[in-house]
């Protein structure tokens, strides 16, 4: 073992850059989450359609999105989009898009499960009072499905935050990008990566803990 002295001064000196990087991770995850939850709902409603022309393509897209490794998908969106279109994405937008699309596929599965979780009797009661299929969905089924979806949907937020740690591969200046930048400059990777790693674990852990607590509370109130 070579003589390597830990110098935590590197971390404290660059704390502002590191924290800005962490903030960027959180912002990307939050934007991606908004995209995922909205797009996922649209996907689910299309997949619930009785028209195969709507249902099947969306189902295929969902399956594909779920199977592509996020790491690869980031490259695909960032470098691929300008190849096949006039779209040149900033790393930030590419990161939100890739994470949001992957998340949408998962969100779609969450919503689908939640729709199935709404008792068949509720659909029938809505029909029996003369509601249209739209009214049944909007006023009876969806409000109950949302409630069922809350715990898994919050877990998706945790998953997206973890997924967001990949975005440095396309040059988003997140916490890990900053860590690499500084450690290359000073040849001191241990301190920076240890700090960044511990920080993100602390954030995701506490978020997961909060979700678990909320879940228990929801269980209690029925």
């Amino acid at each position: 073992m070579i003589d390597y002295r830990l110098d935590w001064g590197l971390v404290t000196e660059n704390l502002d850059r590191l924290m800005a990087g962490l903030g960027l991770l959180v912002v990307i995850a939050a934007f991606a989450y908004a995209v995922a939850m909205t797009l996922g709902l649209a996907m689910t409603l299309l997949r619930a359609s009785r028209l195969p022309i709507l249902r099947i393509p969306v189902a295929v897209v969902v399956e594909v999105l779920r199977s592509i490794p996020l790491f690869l998908f980031l490259f695909l969106v960032y470098y691929g989009a300008p190849q096949v279109s006039a779209l040149v994405l900033t790393p930030f937008v590419a990161a939100v898009a890739a994470l949001g699309l992957t998340g949408a596929a998962y969100a779609s599965e969450i919503y689908r499960g939640a729709l199935k979780g709404v008792d068949a009797g509720q659909w029938e009661a809505a029909d029996a009072i003369g509601l249209s299929p739209f009214g049944r969905m909007r006023y009876v089924v969806l409000p109950q499905a949302f409630r069922i979806a809350i715990p898994p949907a919050l877990n998706l937020l945790v998953a997206l935050l973890k997924g967001a740690t990949f975005v440095s591969v396309i040059g988003v200046a997140d916490m890990f990008y900053v860590s690499r930048d500084i450690s290359l400059q000073y040849f001191a990777p241990f301190e920076l990566y240890t700090f960044s790693g511990m920080t993100i674990i602390a954030v995701t852990l506490s978020l997961a803990g909060a979700v678990a607590m909320l879940e228990r509370r929801l269980d209690r109130t029925g």
Partner: peptide, 18 residues
Amino acid sequence: QELRAHMGMVFQHFNVFP
């Protein structure tokens, strides 16, 4: 839908909207 509203139905498991 219009006819259903005029044919009220009550179910075994109530099916009230929770």
